[in-house]
Design a protein around this nucleic acid. Structure first.
Ligand SMILES: [Mn+2]
Ligand SMILES: [Mn+2]
Ligand SMILES: [Zn+2]
Ligand SMILES: [Zn+2]
Lengths: 141, 141
DNA sequence: AATTAACTTTGAAATCACTACAAAAAAAAG
DNA sequence: CTTTTTTTTGTAGTGATTTCAAAGTTAATT
């Protein structure tokens, strides 16, 4: 019985290839992490978690990989807060909610994404909708 | 004839007081700058411009003032791009448009601000809508 | 008005996220 | 296998923002 590696069963390399990204191991690792956690992590959070299983992974590589995935459109950068970029492998339009107390960033997939029609002489490339407030877990009473 | 200083005629101190901000001179200067320019400037741009007329103004003070104005709600911080916070004294709901080519941030006051209804267990404090794309001035052809 | 307390300003140093760079390693091409 | 191209890594650098403590202002109290 042939040994099966994880990337053969989860289809991550193929998803990356569909974005024109060569599925190198660290790219697969970071992309799988983003998909599995769906956490909107910072580069630092990704590195902290992955370095536990990949001790040689450098932070520079995490930045390189994230920049490459963003350029190719496989991942979106979410500017939810000044001085810390967050990353999201869910690239369909959806509203984000950032809790002021616990800091978590939620996907509000359950509500519709608004239609924005700017004047015709502006050309849209991307629309970000970010709500700030207090999440269900942090409500008092 | 009594000499009239600018702050007596433009009502800036009163506007600041209405937000619970004591109208110290630098606060008035920064706030008036934001209102007059309506430019969504960075802290650095504000300092660069104001230091020409107020040579002793330190960058730290600009940061202090901006943080205070944001805390008191007199000014909004717009996270339009990673590692550069921009500031806005127009605090009514409006859509922002950032041009990828010239970097300018426009107010799209002419289009309606979308209604966002998150699940009731989330409490909203602020909604930001940021469009990325190319502005009229930067369109080719 | 003088004294005291509270707040603000300042510049230097520190922090923190991110980038630049160049050498080493790995992958692809021939 | 050899050469070329791409990727990874650690170190050093950058730039925006914060921290800190001293000096300066403003407000409150005698
Ligand atoms: Mn998301
Ligand atoms: Mn605005
Ligand atoms: Zn929360
Ligand atoms: Zn433009």
């Amino acid at each position: 019985m042939k040994k099966t590696v994880r990337s053969e069963i989860d289809g991550i390399p193929e998803r990356l290839r569909s974005f024109g990204v060569r599925p190198l191991t660290h790219r697969v690792d970071v992309y799988r992490y983003l998909i599995e956690q769906n956490n909107h992590p910072t580069a630092d959070m990704i590195h902290n978690d992955l370095v536990k299983i990949l001790p040689s992974l450098s932070k520079t590589t995490v930045y390189n990989v994230l920049n490459h995935l963003c350029e190719k459109g496989a991942v979106h950068r979410v500017n939810v807060e000044q001085h810390e970029a967050r990353y999201d492998a869910m690239i369909h339009d959806h509203v984000h909610f950032k809790c002021r107390l616990c800091g978590k960033v939620y996907d509000l997939d359950e509500i519709p994404f608004p239609t924005i029609d700017p004047p015709t002489d502006y050309s849209i490339e991307i629309v970000q909708v970010i709500i700030g407030g207090i999440c269900p877990d942090c409500q008092t009473g």
